[in-house]
Amino acid sequence: MSASSAPVALPGLDGKVALVTGGASGIGLATVRLLAASGAKVVVADLDEAAATAAADEVGGTAVRADVTSADDCAAAVAAAVDTYGHLDVVACNAGLTTYPTPAVEITEGDFDATFAVNVKGAWLTARAAVGALKDAGGGAIVVTGSVMGERTRPGFAAYAPSKAAANHLARSLAVEHAGDGIRVNAVAPVATDTAMLEKFLGTEDPAAARQRFESSIPLGRLATPEDVASAICFLASDSASFLTGVVLPVDGGRSI
């Protein structure tokens, strides 16, 4: 599905209330659009308040500025969902950060810390803030945006890849802890996705050639689109996936085979 195509509604989401972090662009925005098209009420949380407001206005949702590395901001985002819509059913921990490919010994301490703060701590803080509201609603679903690089790394990503390995495993840990609360927790593990972050992943002076090389390594012959990943997130969040928890679902065109 192209970015300009209308999202096709998925079953099992109608009437649900969903919170999406990093919801103003890329995978997050595609997720917001698909959730709304599927009948969910959506809270768009993003560090960019203006972009979050634009996304929320587009789908008739609610916007909140949130830095996922702040426990207070995560709690406020959850409160916005409950105060506005009365409950919370779905949380997409999607906010993410990467750097240009950099040898491990050259990554700055600041970049390393920031990558883990957003990709791991941010997902944990968001989930931690949401558990109480999900329990109050009788259960729900959390979906963490991990990465295939959390399972299979490549040179230059000694901060990003371990952070995504931790994010993938965070989903598994939360799944074990909260199954008894009726809360399912899964992760999606995308391959390189055609978003504004792609330039950093390719990290070259010839992005067209780098993209072609990368696409040639994917059995299905292309990069992921934000809509590809959003479809997986929304499926895992829906009632159609009611017996799935602790899953890390590759959305990678076969690259991790």
Rank of each mutant, 00 (worst) to 15 (best):
97 L>E: 14
90 V>L: 10
92 A>C: 13
109 E>D: 15
67 D>P: 10
106 E>W: 03
63 A>Q: 04
100 Y>L: 15
73 D>N: 07
78 V>H: 11
81 A>D: 06
68 V>E: 08
75 A>C: 06
85 Y>K: 01
103 P>Q: 01
74 C>L: 08
65 R>L: 09
62 T>R: 15
79 A>D: 14
69 T>Q: 12
100 Y>H: 15
88 L>W: 09
60 G>L: 10
88 L>E: 04
65 R>G: 13
81 A>H: 05
107 I>K: 00
103 P>I: 02
93 C>P: 00
104 A>H: 13
89 D>C: 03
82 V>C: 01
86 G>I: 06
86 G>Y: 09
95 A>L: 05
75 A>T: 14
61 G>P: 01
65 R>Q: 15
77 A>Q: 07
92 A>L: 09
93 C>F: 00
61 G>R: 00
73 D>H: 12
76 A>K: 08
78 V>Y: 11
68 V>K: 11
83 D>H: 03
61 G>Y: 01
89 D>K: 02
60 G>V: 10
78 V>T: 11
74 C>K: 08
65 R>D: 12
94 N>F: 07
80 A>E: 12
82 V>F: 01
90 V>R: 00
95 A>Y: 05
62 T>W: 10
85 Y>W: 07
88 L>G: 03
106 E>G: 00
89 D>Q: 04
101 P>M: 09
109 E>H: 13
77 A>D: 11
97 L>D: 11
86 G>L: 03
75 A>E: 14
84 T>H: 10
97 L>Y: 15
71 A>G: 04
85 Y>C: 00
60 G>H: 07
72 D>M: 01
101 P>I: 11
75 A>N: 11
70 S>L: 05
76 A>W: 02
85 Y>R: 01
82 V>E: 01
88 L>P: 08
103 P>F: 01
91 V>A: 02
71 A>R: 14
